[in-house]
């Protein structure tokens, strides 16, 4: 196992340094970036408060607004989009509150925008706007992640950046750790020693597992550390952040098992690395489509990464032990196939 570390440590340190730097840098930039991900404020929304009352098939929206001096009465406008509000029946309201009944649709409470207009000295004047649902940013509507919260930042970090880079890197390490021994026929000498092919491969995989554990530990710590550094780390965040890292473990192990299998099957470094990259990028692609295209969400359950449920752990602090075990078992199954292939194949000459 030491021989792998001796030939790998420079690459490992360089990778860790580069990624830590990038992650820390992105986190540091987040306070100014975060606001860009917030939804645009509705005009005068601070003047109007909204409360929902669930009545089964319908939802009653209670609206209340701050009084406007000299107002004769108020008008309530409503429309599903914020741009084209039309006059509501409720015209000439004398109090500072109104109710509005909404039919539920398949998504529950429908989106509805309201505007309260006051009549002052014969002139109409906007009091404020409100929405039946909490507003979401365009980014959140597309990817389902609220980037204006620090958890969203962590999720984004994992999803598109740290996670992808790390999976590609570890896939590369897995494929090349074994296939490097095929290059220049190192394997001839190694396998002339009393080492079974199974033991050889399992030892390589043990090394890869340790390598993964180290990488994920560093990843978790860098996220926690850099968020603490910008003062965005609440106490309750530490466990979910570290957990989000741990949950990647079986997914990465599966990628490493695939890399190992590719290496013993093709016995050629470049091809093996190419295959494992394909495996990773295909999953990323499928998950991207699944998260963006409506009705295709189920696609992500066909990929290992789909079981790395970041938002569940980061936003709600829940995770599935079953999923964890499932992917870990898949990794071991692929590794077992790699051992069988390795035991049966001629060593490339």
């Amino acid at each position: 196992m030491l021989i792998e570390l001796r030939t790998n440590w420079k690459v490992l340190l360089t990778f860790l340094a580069v990624v830590s730097f990038l992650v820390a840098g992105m986190v540091a930039a987040w306070p100014s970036m975060g606001t860009a991900f917030q939804a645009d404020a509705l005009k005068g929304e601070e003047n109007v408060s909204v409360e929902l009352e669930d009545l089964g098939d319908t939802v009653k929206v209670h609206l209340q607004w701050s009084p406007v001096e000299g107002a004769d009465n108020y008008t309530l406008l409503a429309y599903p989009q914020p741009q084209m509000l039309v006059p509501e029946r409720a015209e000439g309201i004398d109090t500072e509150s109104a109710e509005h009944l909404l039919e539920k649709d398949e998504g529950g409470t429908p989106q509805m925008y309201f505007a309260v207009v006051a009549l002052v000295d014969g002139e109409r004047q906007l009091v404020g706007m409100a929405s039946s649902l909490e507003r979401t940013s365009v980014y959140e509507e597309t990817f389902g992640v609220n980037m204006s919260r620090v958890e969203g930042m962590a999720s984004f970090m994992w999803d598109l950046f740290w996670g992808l880079l790390m999976m590609l890197f570890l896939g590369y390490v897995a494929a090349s750790t074994v296939s490097r021994d095929f290059e220049e026929r190192k394997m001839d000498i190694i396998l002339s020693k009393p080492v079974s092919r199974r033991r050889y491969l399992l030892e390589k995989f043990a090394f890869l597992t340790a390598y993964t554990a180290l990488m994920l530990l560093v990843a978790g710590l860098v996220l926690v550390g850099s968020m603490a550094a910008i003062g965005e780390l609440s106490e309750g965040m530490v466990a979910p952040l570290l957990m989000s890292s741990l949950l990647a473990f079986p997914v990465v192990l599966l990628i490493m098992a695939v890399g190992t299998l590719a290496a013993v099957y093709v016995q050629d470094g470049r091809t093996a690395v190419g295959l494992v990259f394909l495996f990773v990028l295909l999953q990323v692609g499928i998950n991207l489509v699944a998260s963006m295209a409506e009705g295709l969400e189920h696609l992500s359950s066909y990929t290992a990464m789909g079981y790395w449920d970041l938002d569940a752990i980061l936003f709600d602090n829940v995770y599935s032990v079953g999923d964890f075990v499932l992917i870990a078992a898949a990794a071991l199954a692929v590794l077992a196939v790699a051992v069988l292939v390795f035991e049966r194949r001629d060593m490339a000459g």
């Binding site: 021989i3 290059e183 220049e184 026929r185 190192k186 001839d188 000498i189 002339s192």
Partner: peptide, 9 residues
């Protein structure tokens, strides 16, 4: 065993 064609690290 000494292979005819081999490499090391």
């Amino acid at each position: 065993y000494l292979p005819g064609d081999f490499g090391m690290y």
